[in-house]
Simulated scan of single mutants.
Amino acid sequence: MPTSPLSSRPARLLATVALLAAAPTAALAQAGEVNVYTYREAKLVAPLFEAFTKDTGIKVNTISASSGLEQRIATEGANSPADVLLTVDIGRIKDAIDLGVAQPIKSTVVETVVPAQYRDPGGLWSAISVRARVVYASKDRVPQNEITYEDLADPKWKGRICIRSGQHIYNNALFAAYIAHHGEAKGEEWLKGLKANLAQKPSGGDREVARDIAAGKCDIGVGNTYYWALMNDREADKKAWADATKVILPTFKDGGTHMNVSAVVLAKNAPNRANGVKLIEWLLGDTAQHLYADVNYEYPIKAGIKINPTIAGYGELTADKLPIVTIAENKKKAATLVDKVGFDN
């Protein structure tokens, strides 16, 4: 396997990190290797890293976790083995930038391939794929195929909406985008209306939203584009949930569909900096972008790459033009409002 985790068990992971932290930075650099800290599930990134190794001969070592990777890089300091941080949300990116663990990528490939709204103006991060936060709806009980995010607070949906925690990073980004579009006061009013329309306390994940719609507990819910595709195409035990639902691409009034990013940071003290840049640039190439489309069910960031047929089946996407950095600037306000209105209570 070209992708070799630095550790597979918690105790061994801590020992590995401690050992690397004690080593001189120069000793961490290995010709033909790159170290990736990743929030993506191992099974989702393995095909990408295997293809990268096949194309370049550079071995990819990974540490994966569901939280805390940017904090770990900060704690490791100058002796961190991390070359690249791979994230699944703008919130993780903002945390990494705020902690000072990134350095400019400085790549003409990034500047050429990635639209300006999906990368940092100073080059500290770049998206490598995008996903949309959409509406799952009952095929039987919801005849309409169009909806706006603003409509989710309409009383006609009272007792009919399911959603995961308002403090989850995916919902936090959506709420932050709403604030960026409409302002904090209207954002609070909207959150109150959305909360009033919930069929049950926020819980579970995006898959469970589809499950509860299929069970008749609610009629619509909010989820990411790729979860529905995974349930429909690959997860046989959840296929019934997809069969009972459909995906609607909502938009902001006078705007487009809210987008979030899978993104990369080049670590500030990357011991294999050149290989880190090679990996980032490779992830923006045709091979990786096709894999993102067909393995991860995400929208390619590179123009001209075919969208996966299941994702394309949702309809024509009109992506919101709001820069990702603007969404990030409103994340704290969104989190504060979620608590203020008691959204998760």
Rank of each mutant, 00 (worst) to 15 (best):
N345S: 14
G342R: 00
I58R: 12
G216W: 03
T108N: 15
I327N: 10
R211D: 03
A23I: 06
W157H: 14
T318W: 02
A42R: 13
V338W: 03
I324D: 12
L14C: 00
T56R: 14
V222E: 06
K106A: 14
P155A: 06
T108Q: 15
I58C: 12
G216E: 03
P24M: 04
L86I: 08
D55L: 10
G205E: 02
I161E: 03
A74R: 05
K192V: 10
E329T: 06
V338Y: 03
T287N: 09
I305Y: 09
T16N: 12
V222R: 00
A328P: 05
V277N: 14
D120L: 00
A177M: 03
V101W: 03
V109P: 05
K94A: 15
T53W: 03
A210D: 04
D344P: 05
E208W: 04
E150L: 09
R141L: 13
F49C: 11
K59Q: 14
L14R: 12
I169V: 15
T148D: 08
I280G: 11
K54V: 09
E281H: 01
G122L: 09
L174H: 01
P81Y: 10
G204D: 11
R131C: 07
L19G: 01
A173Y: 00
N197Y: 09
K186P: 02
T318V: 09
A31E: 09
R164C: 02
G255H: 03
Y37Q: 01
K278R: 12
N197M: 06
W241V: 02
F52V: 08
L191R: 12
A21C: 09
A65G: 02
E76G: 06
V325T: 11
K201R: 15
P115L: 14
E150P: 08
D95L: 15
A96M: 00
K43R: 14
G159D: 11
S4V: 14
Y37S: 04
G221D: 13
L28K: 14
T38R: 01
V17R: 13
I161A: 04
V34I: 13
E70P: 09
S67Y: 07
L85S: 06
V17E: 04
L317Q: 11
L86W: 14
E316D: 08
E33I: 08
V277M: 12
S66P: 00
P143G: 14
A229L: 10
R211W: 00
Y37N: 02
L337I: 13
T326P: 01
E298P: 00
T38M: 01
K268A: 05
A74P: 00
T53C: 07
V17W: 05
I213S: 02
A153I: 02
N145C: 01
G166C: 06
N269T: 12
Q117H: 04
